[in-house]
Design a binder for these strands. Sequence first.
DNA 1: ATTATTCCTGACCAATTGGTCAACATGTGA
DNA 2: TCACATGTTGACCAATTGGTCAGGAATAAT
Lengths: 223, 223
Amino acid sequence: MTSPPCTAKSSAISKEATRAHNEQLILAAAERIFARHGYRGASVQAIAEAAGLPKSNVLYYMGSKQALYVRLLARMMQRWNALLDDISVEDDPAEVLTAFIRRKMQLSLRHPEGSRLFAAEILGGAPFLQEYLNGELRDWVESRARVFEQWAERGLMDPVNPVWLIFLIWSSTQHYADFEAQVLGITGKKAISEEDIEDITRFLSRIVLKGCGVRRPHPQQQV
Amino acid sequence: MTSPPCTAKSSAISKEATRAHNEQLILAAAERIFARHGYRGASVQAIAEAAGLPKSNVLYYMGSKQALYVRLLARMMQRWNALLDDISVEDDPAEVLTAFIRRKMQLSLRHPEGSRLFAAEILGGAPFLQEYLNGELRDWVESRARVFEQWAERGLMDPVNPVWLIFLIWSSTQHYADFEAQVLGITGKKAISEEDIEDITRFLSRIVLKGCGVRRPHPQQQV
DNA sequence: ATTATTCCTGACCAATTGGTCAACATGTGA
DNA sequence: TCACATGTTGACCAATTGGTCAGGAATAAT
């Protein structure tokens, strides 16, 4: 039902392709602007200029400033959910925690603007994300927390507060996207390189694993 | 030279006192609004309303929106500097790190709005704080980093990257102010209590100390 | 070629922005 | 008491805000 029968050469292609192209242009520009200035501080005009399109066109594509904003938030939550995979008590704590840190780190630095957009939203009291925080995300945290506790019971790690642990991982990884300006200013770097990311990931994994006294599971039962 | 000779009873008091009072009112309100909406997103009108004063009065006291903003930033940097005390190689790493975490945690939660104001500024690319980040703060970080390295050389802690370690402490403590909305949403709490702060402080100290393999210094030389 | 439909955008709107200013109120020092 | 400085604020300003809309441009179907 989609693909309009490829009759003319330039027409059909142009039609849908440019639409998609322009949408991406707008979304990328909007993410930058919203991240930098917050919802209220961002202006549709500024977004339009950053996208190289007239303001009316942005409104035409996106409907309204608010619709554009929630769409960006939704996209970011989708990316976020993609790495919130399930874990079980049977998994190896060291592997799970390392993978968690690595993925979170990559998300933060693969999508720094999205990361900052999210941060600005929370900073402003999360007016559009209350529901998500109190629902989906809360459940996710509680389920992981329970697994951490069971690991502790089995002696695979210290009995630390699992929620504080999750916040520790979130915050320390998020930091390199949200406070990029600070990180660059202090380290004197021009940008955070791939090697830096790898280095930081190893550092954080090491501190967290050692700090929580994570031990290799007894190879008693092969699962 | 200050105190106007206390001639009249209500007059002198009223004059200067109300000025000071109103200023505090404005500063507190502005900190809230700027923290919530960022520099561009905050309006002088909103600040005035939050302070219970006419807009003109706010401008009269503060000169301009920007002057008010930089004044708030300066105040926050002052608070920040107050806890950035000096340390030496001779100090006990465990004590220093614990004190550092505790103070940073208290700063974040004693002045959550100021903390968020700072965060919003960095998030927006630190247009007003570039200088501070590249100068004062950078020097501070480098000097502490050198001490950490020397501790590692003396075998008092693992040879971890000291800058990443400082960022870890900053981010994990800052988190509870900046992402308060998320923390409350997920934990289901109404507010972060004093006990929570104490609990989190202990948790973070424990993870960091253990994670960095911090050892008590040999009591070989009493300093 | 000629409709019909969708896309695009400049002109415009009321509301809000940061900031100014003249007029008025309020002490203050003589 | 009376001038004089200081404190206060409503009215106003040009610029910008998010959003609408009419009408032209481009494409699609006939």
